[in-house]
């Protein structure tokens, strides 16, 4: 069994986000990139499957700032091969990424492709369904559990309200991971450093990228909302007093019977 995990880096939303002076893209000058948390779950799910069955895990990521650490970390967790796709990704969208990654995956011929179900900077749909269509394979997203049986994957797909659909998918297939069966494991920095000395990142240049498939953005702006919370300021004591009066107004404070 061979599993490919596609991973990408996304803007860290804890940091301040600004729009480029051109007004149609994010300003990436000071943008801090981190692994897409759903992709982190996809890596974990692949490693969990590897621990249950004899499976080869290959992790692929496009070259964003910080990607080497992400790939070496995946390796320290148990990935067998790590591939960095190189090229100019400054204005890439998921359609272009899907086409480019599909061309690599066709060569690797995995039984299963895992990727995060979504990313915070998706603007032309998430990458999973597009990747599956490029490969002419079925796709199931919002997956929070995977079991492999011969040429079939049995998956748990999440629906609103906490309902879960159990589905079977004939392999090869692409899955969009919502959550691995357990939280992504922690690996010590020292172990990642050790892996950096003993493992190699396989660098593969990508040819020209085809960004078609997304309508033109004419304006990008910070979310401006018509409403904003009434902000309560002051010391914790003062804030607590104000909140207690809100609770009283709402009639949710039940007097203690004495």
């Amino acid at each position: 069994m061979k599993i490919v995990v596609f991973v990408k880096l996304v803007p860290d939303l804890v940091e301040e986000l600004t729009v480029d002076p051109g007004g149609t893209t994010l300003d990436t000058t000071w943008l801090r990139m981190i692994i897409n948390e759903f992709d982190d779950h996809a890596v974990e799910q692949a490693i969990l499957l590897k621990e249950k069955t004899s499976t080869q895990v290959i992790v692929i990521a496009p070259d964003f700032d910080g990607v080497d650490e992400v790939l070496f970390t995946a390796c320290a967790k148990g990935a067998d091969q790590i591939i960095k796709l190189t090229g100019d990704f400054s204005s890439i969208n998921n359609h272009a990424l899907a086409r480019a990654v599909a061309s690599r995956i066709k060569i690797l011929q995995p039984d299963l492709v895992l990727t995060g179900v979504q990313a915070n900077n998706d603007i032309d749909g998430s990458i999973g369904p597009a990747l599956a269509a490029c490969l002419n394979q079925p796709f199931v997203g919002y997956v929070s559990g995977v079991t492999l049986e011969d040429n079939t994957a049995i998956v748990q797909k999440e629906y609103p309200g906490g309902v879960i659909a159990e589905m079977s998918i004939t392999l090869p297939a692409v899955l969009g991971i919502q959550a691995a069966e357990q939280p992504p494991r922690y690996v010590a920095v020292s172990k990642v450093r050790q892996v950096m000395k003993t493992s190699n990142i396989d660098e593969q240049p990508l040819d020209e990228l085809d960004n078609s498939g997304f309508p033109e953005v004419t304006r990008m702006f910070q979310s401006e909302t018509s409403a904003h919370a009434e902000m309560i300021t002051g010391s914790p004591d003062e804030i607590a007093d104000r909140l207690v009066s809100v609770f009283k107004e709402k009639g949710i404070l039940q007097r203690t019977n004495r």
């Binding site: 998921n94 359609h95 999973g128 919002y142 797909k157 498939g213 309508p215």
Partner: peptide, 23 residues
Amino acid sequence: NTTIGSDIAGAVSIALGLDLASS
């Protein structure tokens, strides 16, 4: 942009070569 629509829209976009904007 849901557990149903998100699974399908991107695939239709690639399959038919049509533009897709999400969210």
